[in-house]
Design a protein around this nucleic acid. Structure first.
Lengths: 218, 218
DNA sequence: CTACATTGTTAGATCAGTCTAACAAAATTG
DNA sequence: CAATTTTGTTAGACTGATCTAACAATGTAG
C-alpha cells in the first residue's frame, strides 16, 4: 500500500504527465517542492514497487498500475472536496487543504459512502472529473474562455487552476460553476474580455483570468 | 504541531494514566505495540516538546499541555465516530478504524463543522464523553452492570471496551446505547446476569460481558 | 562543433521512528 | 536479604524521506 509520500508523488506524476505520459525529474521536484536528488531516489523506489518506469537521464512514465493508483488518490481527493461543499457547507475555496489530508485515508467504505450520499457525482466543486472506482477518468473537453467569440453565450463549467486566491477572486465577482456568461466584446490589445452574467451587466475579465475559465458553449 | 506518531503516543498516555497520572514505559510499549527502547526514546522527544515529565526509571506523567493536546486528539476521534454514525449511517462497530485515521487531520474548521452539524454532542457512539474545544473532559460515572442488583431497571449508557468483536456481539443481541434492561437475576457462581429488554424476555449475559456494560440506574 | 546552461546522478549526511542485543536498576519472592 | 524476575536504559543499526556538495550527462546557442 502506498505511503502518504508515495501517494503524493503518484498524484503529481499523473498531473504532470504530458501527451507522451512523460514527466521530467526537475518538474516533479518543483511540483513536490523537494530537491532533485530526493526525486531521484524516490522514483527508484516507485519503480521498485511497479508504479513507474525509470531509466537514467530519461523522463519517467507511470505504469498502468501507477496511473490507476494515482487516479484513485485523485478520486479520494475530489470526492472529499465535493462532500465538503455539498454535504458540509464549505466554500469551494476552503476544501483543497482539507482534502489534501483526507485523500490519504485508507478506508474504501468511507469514500464509497460519501459517493453514495452525493448520488455518485462525476465532477468536483471546481469542475474537474472524479475518476471512477477503477481509476478511469472521463476526459471532458471544455473550451477556455479565451477561445470563445464575441456574442457567444457560454456556461462556466471548470477551472484550469483552483488556487484559493483565484477562487476568492471569482467569489468576489459572483462567478461560480454554472454561471451563464454572454461575451460582449474582446479587446485585441490585452486579450481581456467583457462579459455580462446574472445581475452583472458588464464585467471585464483579464486574459490571466479568462485562460483559467473553462466553459461550455450554450 | 504533533506528528501522527506523537498524537498516538499522547492518546495512549492519556488513556493509560492512573489516579496519579502516571504511565509505565512497559504499559505504553505494549499499548503502542512497539519495543521499550522505542518508547524510551520517544518519551525523551515528548519531554523535549513539553508534553510530559520524564525521569530515568520513573513512570512518565503528561504535563497540562500534554493532557490538553491528548484530549484534543481524542475529541477529533470521538467527533469523527459520532459523525460517521449520525451523519453517514455507519454502524458503531465500523467507525473506530476510520476515526483512527481521521483524528490526525489538522483542520480545526472540519471538526468544528462536524460538531455544529450534530448539534454539539457530548458523547460518542460508544457512550464515551467528547472533550470540549479546550480539551476539558466531563467525567461521567456510570455503574458497571456487575454492580447492579436483581430487580433494578437500568439503561445502557456506555462501554468500557469498544472492540469490533464486542460491538458485533452486542449487535447480535440487539443491545445498543439507550436500551433499558431489567435485571431478572444474578448467578452467584459465575457472576452471570439474566436480563430482559425490548422484545427479549430472558437473555443471560456472562460476567465478561457485564463488566464491559456501563449503565445508569432508572 | 565547442562552450555554456540545464538537467540529472552520486555520495554522504541528517532526522524520525523503529529494532535487537546487552546491560543495569528496581521489584518481588523464597 | 539474597536471588531471581521484571522493568527500563544504552548502544548501535536500519528504513524512509529528506538535504547539500560535487560531478556527469544532455541540450542549446553562438
Amino acid at each position: 500500500m502506498a505511503s502518504q509520500t508515495e501517494e503524493n508523488y503518484l498524484k503529481s506524476l499523473f498531473n504532470l504527465a504530458n501527451e507522451k505520459d512523460e514527466v521530467n525529474i526537475s518538474e516533479l521536484a518543483s511540483q513536490m517542492q523537494v530537491s532533485m536528488p530526493t526525486v531521484n531516489s524516490m522514483v527508484k523506489t516507485l519503480q521498485k514497487n511497479g508504479w513507474l518506469i525509470y531509466e537514467k537521464y530519461k523522463p519517467v512514465t507511470l505504469t498502468p498500475a501507477g496511473k490507476k493508483d494515482a487516479a484513485l488518490v485523485i478520486r479520494k481527493h475530489r470526492l472529499t472536496e465535493m462532500f465538503l461543499v455539498n454535504k458540509m457547507g464549505f466554500g469551494w475555496e476552503e476544501v483543497h487543504e482539507i482534502a489534501e489530508q483526507v485523500e490519504h485515508i485508507h478506508a474504501p467504505k468511507f469514500f464509497e459512502r460519501m459517493d453514495e450520499m452525493m448520488g455518485f457525482p462525476t465532477i468536483d466543486p471546481h469542475g474537474s472529473p472524479i475518476p471512477d472506482k477503477l481509476g478511469r477518468i472521463q476526459e471532458i473537453n471544455y473550451l477556455s474562455l479565451t477561445e470563445c467569440k464575441a456574442g457567444q453565450l457560454v456556461k462556466l463549467a471548470g477551472l484550469t487552476n483552483s488556487s484559493t486566491e483565484f477562487l476568492e477572486f471569482l467569489n468576489g465577482r459572483n462567478l461560480s460553476l454554472g454561471t451563464e456568461l454572454r461575451i460582449l466584446s474582446k479587446e485585441a490589445y490585452d486579450h481581456s474580455i467583457v462579459v455580462s452574467y446574472s445581475n452583472h451587466t458588464s464585467e471585464t475579465l483579464s486574459e490571466k483570468v479568462c485562460e483559467k475559465l473553462l466553459v461550455k458553449v450554450m
